[in-house]
Amino acid sequence: MTPEQSLKVISDAIAKSRKDFERNAGTPMILWGVIVLIFSIVIWLLLRTTDNLMWNFLWFGIPVAGWPLSHLFLKNKEIRGARNFVNDTIGQIWIGYGIFAVATAVALSFVAAEHIGAITIVLLGYGAAMTGMVLKNRFITIGGFITGIGGAVALCVFRTYDATLVFSVASVVSLILPGIMMNRNNR
């Protein structure tokens, strides 16, 4: 092998492996974004029409519905036989988000339920920003910061049921749009 051929073997192998993993990298973000979007709109509608705050407990339905759905829809999109550092790290970031979001929501529901939304959205933005940084994707990083900081401020300012819709916007800005963009760029 000449040095040029060696270099080609190395770059071809690395490029092929990256392409395999990047092809559907945005799909989990789209799936979770759509779940959050549907729940936030349904909860907003129920709160507006019934005036019953108990509907806020439906937020816990996001992980309950999300885990089986993601297992069902994403199983065929997984790369079989290999794991890479970037995908593992992103997966761990979002598992961490899920655990902290649920734990914070449960704890705050006893002492300061009105702050659950603001803190959950800061965590959501943090998760999206970290994902963007790991992927070195400026669009996702900025979307994460807008969601975290802007969402928390918006939730503190709008204290009506309409604040629930901040989550709908956040799911689009931090999950759905970056996911669609990632998939499109990697086709």
């Binding site: 192998a13 690395i14 550092f85």
Partner: peptide
Amino acid sequence: LAVMSLLVELE
């Protein structure tokens, strides 16, 4: 070399 290049990229 191809195997090592793949494994460098993968966990």
